[in-house]
C-alpha cells in the first residue's frame, strides 16, 4: 500500500509538516516496493482558497490509501474519506518517526477532521 506523509523536506529524515493542505510536499512510501517518492504540493500552497481540497485530490490521484499528517481540516477530510483514504493524525517530529509509529500500529485512524479550516 501507499502511505503519504506531509513534509517541508525531501527525504524520510525531513520534518513531518503539521499542515496538510498547505504542506510544501508529500513523501509517498510504497510498502510493497519499499520506495519513497516526493510529490510537490506547491499549487495548493499557492491557491487562494480550497488548498485542502486540491491537496486531497493530489493524494487520491497518487493512489495513496493512508495519509499521515499533523492536522486535517473538514473539507480535505471529506474528500479523502469519500475516496477511501484513511487519515492518521500524528505529532511525530520526522517522516521516518511517523512511519515507525504507523508500522508499530500506534496511530489511530481519525474519524473526523481534527481542526477547523484555515487553522494554521
Amino acid at each position: 500500500m501507499k502511505i503519504a506523509f506531509t513534509t517541508s523536506g525531501e527525504s524520510p529524515e525531513a520534518p513531518l509538516d503539521e499542515r496538510f493542505g498547505r504542506a510544501p510536499r508529500f513523501i509517498v512510501h510504497d510498502t510493497d516496493a519499499n520506495t519513497f517518492e516526493t510529490i510537490d504540493n506547491r499549487r495548493s500552497v499557492e491557491a487562494a482558497q480550497g488548498a485542502g481540497i486540491q491537496a486531497a485530490q493530489t493524494i487520491v490521484r497518487a493512489g495513496v490509501q493512508a495519509l499521515v499528517t499533523g492536522h486535517c481540516g473538514p473539507k480535505a477530510f471529506r474528500v479523502l474519506t469519500e475516496a477511501g483514504v484513511a487519515v492518521y493524525n500524528c505529532g511525530a517530529a520526522t517522516v521516518s518517526e511517523a512511519l515507525e509509529r504507523f508500522r508499530a500500529g500506534t496511530l489511530e485512524k481519525a474519524s473526523s477532521a481534527d481542526v477547523d479550516g484555515h487553522w494554521a
Binding site: A47, Q49, G50, I53, Q54, A56, Q57, V60, R61, K75, R78, V79, E82, A83
Partner: peptide, 18 residues
C-alpha cells in the same frame, strides 16, 4: 478552478461555500 465541486471516480462532492 475553485474546487467547489470535486469528483474523483466518485459521485461529486459539492462545497457550496466555495
Amino acid at each position: 478552478e475553485f474546487h467547489a465541486i470535486v469528483s474523483l471516480a466518485t459521485k461529486p462532492l459539492v462545497f457550496a461555500e466555495l
